[in-house]
Design a protein around this nucleic acid. Structure first.
Length: 489
RNA sequence: CGGAACGUGGCGCAGCCCGGUAGCGCACUUGACUGGGGGUCAAGGGGUCGCGGGUUCAAAUCCCGCCGUUCCGACCA
């Protein structure tokens, strides 16, 4: 493997894969479409997870765990749901192996065939609603506000590390409510939580909107989403929150008695974000040196690299250890890279590849002057600070980098968001890349035609209100919605 | 599932056309020198050439079959 990553301008897809592999975030698993999340990548996931989990709990949700296996028959209860997921379900048909007769290996034991096959969850609405049926009898049992952090399997044809893999990690919230208003409010509350954490913690500017009929979740009445622009100007759906109406309650016959002693179906929501967010962070912030991590989710916020010759070694190492504990006392996540086996130049490149926001160099020169050299990953700037300064400046520096990365990504999105005036301009824009903010007549046939001609899809509907005086970019009819069109991952 | 390419030390590749001792770079091991942007020199270790069959005195190389992977489409968080 070469030392550098493929430049983004040369081959964006290859750049992405290079960064994932060289920053040691993930590796390919032995089964097609699977990935191994390596410790550094998993640490990023843990930070993202912690940020979301905190907000979920603050908004009244509890974590639980539902089984991986779902009876096949459950999948067919909700008509749209089965249509949406049937083609990508992994199915368990047998329960054991046996040695082959010639002893050369193992084979499926035909005697162990299951009467009813099991589906490995592609999402858990069905299994969860089969339990909610048992748990809900009265309005006094509502609302139920449950979340789970789990792995799921969707047998995709083509996969890409973090963005689309056969198995991935996510969280899925599943709530049950007595009224439509309450369920709709929950749906909106959670998309707002998604927006906040994406923007405040991942420094990922997102657009909040509603999915079109074609793009919404299989089984939902309405799907709300957050959409982000990646470094190649394509869109990435980064989180979704669904208002499910009474669809699953009806499919699983979940009713309750309201205060007037009337039997009613329960209203539902579900919402999820996945390890795909790691892909979003990589593509929103990464550059040709590798990853650039927002300090709030960086496993290491500042790395200290000692620089010494044999005669200065003990003195420098002593000083860096002291500095490390001073900086740790500020609450920052610090790594002292005291490996003696690689050169400082190697460490610089390695930590830049891994996106550590701040690098602090300390060598004999600094020792004499009581200073340190500080390099910012976001701007590449190198600055000299006195020993005292760095301790008070580091927290500020991390805050600046956090907001700087957000601002860079938002400016990039704004600079690449256009309002094309006619169909030719639209087509040209979809060729060169970017978001198109324009009118759409709301007709699924128009949407399909646009996708067919340009590969662009409705990323989200910005406002449910009919926009005055705006025409559909494709049909020229009065627009039903103001939307964002873009090519998406 | 349609189109294309590729399977050779851990990784990336050359060798194949034209059959005859399996090679290069990176990585790895040991030592010395080095150390402020991916170090230098020296000495080492490691390969059933994806699997199965065929042709041949002889197969990484030619032929047939299978398996796998990647890329491009359709599908998708």
């Amino acid at each position: 493997m070469s030392k550098r990553v493929t430049p983004r301008s040369e081959d964006y897809a290859k750049w992405y894969t290079d960064v994932v592999l060289k920053a040691q975030l993930a590796d390919y698993g032995p089964v097609r479409g699977t990935m191994v999340i390596r410790p550094y990548g998993y640490a990023i996931w843990e930070a993202i997870k912690a940020a979301y989990d905190l907000r979920f709990k603050e908004t009244g949700h509890e974590n639980a765990y539902f089984p991986l296996f779902i009876p096949k028959s459950y999948m067919s209860r909700e008509a749209q749901h089965v249509e949406g997921f049937a083609k990508e379900c992994a199915v368990v048909t047998h329960t054991r192996l046996r040695a082959t007769e010639d002893g050369s290996g193992v084979e499926v034991d035909p005697d162990s065939k299951l009467d009813e096959e099991l589906i490995i969850r592609p999402t858990s609405e069905t299994v969860i609603w089969s339990l909610y049926k048992q748990w809900i009898n009265s309005y006094r049992d509502l609302p139920i506000l449950i979340n789970q952090w789990v792995n799921i399997v969707r047998w995709e044809m083509r996969t890409r590390l973090f963005l689309r893999t056969t198995e991935f990690l996510w969280q899925e919230g599943h709530t049950a409510h007595a009224t439509k208003d309450e369920a709709v409010a929950e749906t909106l509350k959670m998309i707002e939580v998604y927006r906040q954490v994406a923007e405040d913690e991942l420094a990922l500017p997102v657009i909040v909107g509603l999915k079109s009929e074609a793009e919404k979740f299989a089984g939902a009445e309405e799907t709300w989403c957050i959409e982000a622009m990646m470094g190649d100007k394509r869109a990435l759906q980064s989180g979704t929150s669904h208002y499910l109406g009474q669809n699953f309650a009806k499919a699983f016959d979940v009713t309750f008695r309201n205060e007037a002693n009337e039997e009613q179906y329960v209203y539902a929501t579900s919402w999820g974000v996945s390890t795909r967010l790691i892909g979003a962070v990589i593509m929103a912030h990464g550059d040709d040196q590798g990853l650039r991590l927002p300090p709030n989710i960086a496993p290491i916020q500042a790395v200290i690299v000692p620089i010494y010759k044999d005669d200065s070694r003990d003195e420098v190492l002593g000083a860096t250890k002291e500095l490390a504990s001073l900086l740790e006392a500020t609450g920052a996540r610090i790594k002292l890279d005291d490996r003696d086996t690689v050169s400082p130049g190697f460490k610089f490149n390695e930590w830049e590849m891994k996106g550590v926001p701040v690098r602090i160099e300390l060598g004999p020169r600094d020792l004499k002057q009581s200073t340190v050299m500080v390099a910012r990953r976001d701007t590449g700037e190198k600055l000299s600070f006195s020993n005292d300064q760095i301790v008070s400046r580091l927290p500020e520096l991390l805050t600046e980098i956090q907001s700087g990365l957000y601002k860079q990504a938002r400016d990039f999105r704004e600079a690449n968001t256009y309002s094309p005036g006619n169909w030719d301009e639209f087509k040209e824009l979809m060729n060169t890349g970017g978001f198109a903010r324009c009118g759409w007549d709301g007709d699924p046939l128009t949407e399909a035609a646009i996708k067919n001609e340009t590969k662009a899809t409705v990323r989200c509907i910005l406002d449910e209100q009919e926009p005055a005086g705006i025409k559909c970019i494709h049909s020229g009819k009065p627009a039903r919605y103001l939307v964002i069109f873009a090519k998406a991952y």
